[in-house]
Amino acid sequence: MRVPALTLRALILAAFAVFFVAPIVWLILAPTKSDAALVTSSPFSFGSFGNAWRAWHHLDAFSDHIYRRWMTNSLIYSLSATAITLAVSIPAGYGLALGRFPGRKLILSVTLVVMIMPAATLVLPIFLELNALHLIGSMFSVILPFSFFPFGVYLAYIYYSTAIPSELLDAARVDGCGEWSTFRRVALPLAKPVVALVFFFSFVSNWNNFFLPYVVLADSNQYPITVGLSNLLASTPSFNPAVGGGGQSVNIFKPELALATLLAVIPVAIVFLVSQRALVRGMLGGAVKE
């Protein structure tokens, strides 16, 4: 009885694994093939590195290196907004978790409410607000709304209210720290794991945000990669027959698109690896009794 049961379990697991992994493998292999081979050859066959290199040249040549531009824009927008998010949400979470001041509960509830609100719901009022402030079309129209990240405040709040023993902060106060240096010298260094978490989540959500920049940015030179990719899609003859006819040298086909999406994932993967390292366990080992 045991062996068939085990086999059955293995089969089910394998089936699921194949189901989920197959598209990823296909995507990784896609840029190595020619547009025609992508359709005709076996889905999991490897083309050649030459094909991939050519796909990159086509992609890079598109609209005067605009792909690089979009990637740079995305990095600038995401990193600046994430920096603001970190500078605000870590102290805010700390204050909400350990401070005792009137209105604390209210701020906390408001944070929770706006946290569960889908970002897209605010795009229109934010557009109107930015318009009133004459920021539409500037990079701030993306960075400022991006930097509003209540989930980061919530993560920091949870971390400080559960992971940091209050005696540790009391010790700092008795040892001569004022409120700011208690935070700076004790609470902040111990918050490395949550800083890494907020950094990662904030960066990813900024990097992936499509709707807001799509609405507030007009110039394609200012697009982040998300909006850029959709722009690219619209320029592909196989997706949009209207282009590519009139003698334009648009060399964007399916392999180039696959490469564009693959490259767009790389910064997120790097950020993940970096923040992963900081999510060290045992950060607080030895602080208080175990």
Partner: peptide, 14 residues
Amino acid sequence: DIAMVFQSYALYPH
């Protein structure tokens, strides 16, 4: 100008 020893010791772990 006081110094305190806590029950949990409250050493700075970092």
